[in-house]
Each structure stands twice: as C-alpha cells, then as structure tokens.
C-alpha cells in the first residue's frame, strides 16, 4: 500500500505525532515537570470526573453548558438546613461554591468576619467567606488543575469539606448573622489543634 502525503499534511501529521510522543513520555517520570502542552480543552474531562463524583454520592444536579457550571441543592445538618451549590469548571481549576440561604445583616458583618477568621484558622481544604457588600455567606474550596487532572476522590472530598463547614458551624453562623451574637459566645468550645502554627 502506498500512502502519498502533501508536504503541509506531512508537517501537521509530524506535529501531532511529536505531541503524542511528548504526552506519552510525560507519563513516565515521577516528580518531573511535564512538558509544555498546547492549550487543550480540559472541560470535558473535568465535567466527566465531577459528574461521576456527584452521581456516586447520589446528588441530583444540572449542568449549564454555556458557563461550564454544575448546580445542586444540598441538605445540611445543624441550623443551616439547606444550601445551594455551584461547581464551576475552568481550564485550570475546579471551584466549589456552597451558599447557605441566609445572609448577614450589615451591622453584624464585622462580627461575622471575626467568627470566620476564627473558624478558618483551624481548617484546611475549605474556607468560610463573606461578601461584605451584600452579606452573602459562602463555603469555598477549589482544586488546582495545571498538569494533573483530579480524581473522583478529590472532587468528592471537596464536596464534603464545603458542606461540612456549613453543617459544623451552622449554629454559630446563624447566631452571628441573624442575632448579632458575639463570635466568642456563638462559637462552641472546640478542641481543635492550632494546625497552622509555625
């Protein structure tokens, strides 16, 4: 069989094969930087991983194709019984946004900032945040996606961490956000270790 290719097509083919080879080589060494790669669309792969994690955990969700964003309602334990969640897919990140259905009155936002600062000090993986402009509360986490695609366990863990933060501290968040209780009164005594200390 004789395969005849034009020069332009040969160059394209050579480039594709060269990139294929570099991608295969990048799988082999441990701890070495991966070669520069052309910008590939990672969204389909990320979408598949997140969908699998959500399905395995029994969530009902929808997906916005235009914005590459998942939406789901979640049930929480504690004073904040429910929340809604967006999982946004980017080429370099998967971002988890879990919003409880309460917001912080303007006069209590300084107290909420102190409460969140106290809570966040003791936690990794997810943080409590607040929009000072409108008092929206948020539990946030993210997975960096630069050279490595995350696995289903990483996605499942971030889902858990964001929701667990709101479940664990829902009572304190509600007491400060709605009643204006002081952070030290609202926050239950914990035995958390100062994990962030140098």
């Amino acid at each position: 069989m004789h395969l005849s290719l034009s020069p332009a097509v040969s160059i394209i083919l050579a480039l594709i094969l060269a990139f294929t080879a570099s991608a295969v080589i990048s799988l082999a060494p441990e701890g070495l930087p991966m070669p520069e790669q052309p910008a590939a669309d990672r969204i389909p792969a990320l979408r598949a991983v997140v969908e699998q994690a959500l399905t395995e955990d029994g969530y009902r969700f929808s997906y916005d194709e235009e914005n590459n964003s998942f939406y789901l309602d979640v049930q929480l334990e504690g004073a904040l019984s429910s929340a809604y969640m967006y999982i946004d897919l980017y080429q370099d990140m998967v971002a988890f946004y879990c919003y409880p259905t309460i917001s912080v009155r303007a006069e209590y936002r300084d107290s909420m900032a102190e409460l969140q600062t106290r809570i966040n000090w003791d936690h990794s993986f997810a943080q409590l945040q607040m929009d000072y402009q409108d008092g929206r509360l948020l539990a946030y986490s993210r997975i960096i996606v630069e050279g490595v695609l995350p696995g289903v366990p990483e996605v499942g863990a971030q889902l858990f961490f964001t929701q667990n933060l709101l479940s664990s501290y829902g009572d304190a968040l509600a007491k400060v956000a709605l009643l204006g209780m002081s952070p030290s009164e609202a926050l239950p005594v914990t035995t958390l270790s100062p994990a962030r200390s140098l």
Partner: peptide
C-alpha cells in the same frame, strides 16, 4: 487522595 500533584 487518588492522584499525585505535578510540579505545576
């Protein structure tokens, strides 16, 4: 948990 990060 399931994959090692890269240097990136």
């Amino acid at each position: 948990l399931s994959v090692y990060p890269g240097e990136e």
